[in-house]
Design a protein around this nucleic acid. Structure first.
Length: 504
RNA sequence: GCUCCGAUAGUGUAGCAGGCCAAUCAUUCUGGCCUUUCAAGCCAGUGACCCGGGUUCAAAUCCCGGUCGGAGCACCA
């Protein structure tokens, strides 16, 4: 074949290159290298209108991971410049920081946009003076029509003097909402309609939820403006964010050009969908919590970091999971299986084992009075847990339904029995040896003493109620495994033990 | 409508300045071993370069067209 001829040819003319062909290319692991000169400064910029979700985790982890790797600076900046549509939630400022720390991404600096309004006003004034911004009085619809027709609005060329006057009047509260807006002058005939003279400030008379701010301002910057100015003021060198903000970059660059600033290097990732959570938005969750669909921001069915934490998902597992996603611009639709697998790897070696019987059915046993079961706390760890047993035990209904009179099986870590009746469920003791299991391949089921503790397990798929062995009450806040059920985090141990399901 | 991205197994990902690729790793699934849990561990297996052209001795990799998916054109972030 032709394909092989080049090799012979190369052999003849440059045999020293042949060895080079055999060199394997090194596969790139983890995050790609960044192109850096000077100190790396990165930021994660959420709107605190709700707690951090799994989506936020990507922004937190990737940005902080890079700043750790290159010894840079990691800033968290709250883009809280919309007191109405995406109204900030006061607790969320604190929650975000707490979640960052939990994830091992303690910010080096925390910035709140609503504290820095004067700086934005100052830049706006500079732009007006450079004839790069103007106060526009067109209604929303009117402007859109003009823009779509590539026509400039009458206010575009009204002159610096008038613009300054109008701007001052805006700041002083001299206009109503919707009446005036400050626009950045770009290129009204730009082929991409998204670039044409975009809005930078609008009037909002609703007070900001932060007490420090309140009704101090009635002119608020839009994200493209606030973000552009902040990234420059904070000295951000690299921005990594969702690709939905790609167009923002082109818009923001007009400001950078007008003011002679250097735009940070950017990298983007695609849209993320998580099978297990379906479509969700912070505002949607907020509503579902308010109407009682979910019990709160840490309901096990909700995709917040607080919920994952409560379920016993460890931050290291989340970090690994996120970093393995890489930085592709492809839209992804992922399942949490990998996250659970990572978490299981960490938890399985250390989680204590317990019996929990869901949908319990009573089984009475003849031929053996009082005994104490000695079960290993962990299959490879040291200790044992002792469970006193009289002549009845509880077993799962799912197991009970498969049993017939005459069946022989083993109660795990206890003894062997033979079923003597199914309604009610009765059995007789037939020995303690392991031969029944090893030779006769009898099944093994787990069980619980009737005087054990009541247990409720809250899982994303619903609730389980049943009885567990008494030792569970000593495991508050730890992640344990309920044998043949899955891992759970023991959340509270009052009259009933409440456990949050982690994963299988 | 206009504009901008992207496309490798079920899922995520590596490779993408052309030959090391009958394509990496992880997870899922299947089978086996091990095990007093249907967990974990160990071994094995199934499974992918969106389609069509072009350039080239050689294309997952470069070019063009199409399809599909996503995003922007907000007085949201």
């Amino acid at each position: 074949m032709e394909q092989d001829k080049w090799k012979e040819e190369l052999e003849r003319i440059a045999p020293e290159l042949i060895s080079e062909l055999k060199v394997k290319k090194e596969p790139d692991k983890g995050l790609p290298e960044l192109d850096i000169n000077g100190k790396l400064v990165m930021r994660f910029a959420p709107n605190p209108n709700g707690p951090a979700t799994l989506g936020s985790a990507r922004g937190i982890i990737v940005n902080s991971e890079y700043t750790k790797k290159y010894n840079g600076k990691f800033i968290i900046r709250f883009d809280d410049t919309d007191p109405v549509t995406k109204r900030p939630m006061l607790e969320a400022y604190y929650w975000y920081i707490e979640d960052c720390e939990w994830l091992g991404a303690k910010p080096d600096e925390v910035v709140i946009a609503s504290d820095r309004m004067e700086k934005y006003y100052e830049v706006a004034r500079q732009l007006i003076e450079k004839e790069a911004a103007y106060v526009c009085f067109c209604g929303q619809g009117t402007f859109k029509e003009l823009k779509d027709a590539k026509k400039s609005c009458p206010h575009r060329e009204q002159g610096v003097g008038k613009n300054l006057m109008f701007w001052d009047k805006m700041l002083a509260g001299g206009y109503n909402e919707q009446e005036a807006v400050l626009r950045i002058k770009t290129d009204i005939v730009h082929k991409d309609p998204a670039m044409r003279d975009w809005g930078a400030f609008r009037i909002i008379k609703t007070p900001h939820p932060r007490k420090e701010v309140g009704d101090k301002y009635c002119v608020w910057p839009l994200l493209d403006f606030e973000g552009a100015v902040e990234d420059h003021l904070l000295g951000v060198t690299h921005i990594i964010r969702g690709k939905d903000l790609m167009d923002s970059e082109s818009r923001q660059k007009y400001i950078y050009r007008y003011l002679g600033w250097t735009y940070p290097k950017t990298l983007h990732w695609g849209r993320v969908k998580v099978h297990e959570f379906g479509k969700f938005s912070t505002s949607g969750l907020k509503k579902a919590i308010a109407d009682g669909t979910y019990s709160g921001w840490d309901d096990p069915r909700v995709p917040t970091l607080r919920a994952l934490k409560r379920r016993g998902i460890l931050p290291e597992a989340i970090r690994k999971f996120i970093i393995d996603l890489g930085l592709s611009e492809t839209d992804i639709s992922l399942s949490l299986d990998s996250l659970y697998a990572e978490n299981r790897k960490i938890i399985d070696p250390i989680a204590n084992r317990y019996f929990f019987v869901w949908k319990p059915v009573v089984m009475s046993i003849e031929g053996k009075e009082h005994t104490v079961a000695r079960a290993p706390i962990h299959p490879v760890g040291g200790g044992v847990r002792e469970i006193p047993v009289q002549n009845t035990v509880l077993v799962c209904r799912d197991d009970a339904e498969k049993l017939n009179a005459g069946d022989k099986l083993r109660l795990k870590d206890l003894y062997n029995i033979e079923i003597t009746g199914t309604s009610p469920l009765t059995a007789k003791f037939i020995g303690t040896g392991m031969e029944l299991v090893k030779k006769d391949k009898a099944g093994i089921i787990h069980w619980a003493p009737p005087d054990g503790v009541k247990v409720r397990v809250l899982s994303p798929g619903g609730e389980y109620e049943g009885v567990g062995e008494a030792g569970i009450v000593n495991e508050k806040d730890s992640v344990v495994q309920f044998e043949r059920f899955g891992f759970v985090r023991i959340d509270s141990v009052d009259d009933v033990v409440v456990a949050y399901f982690t994963h299988r």
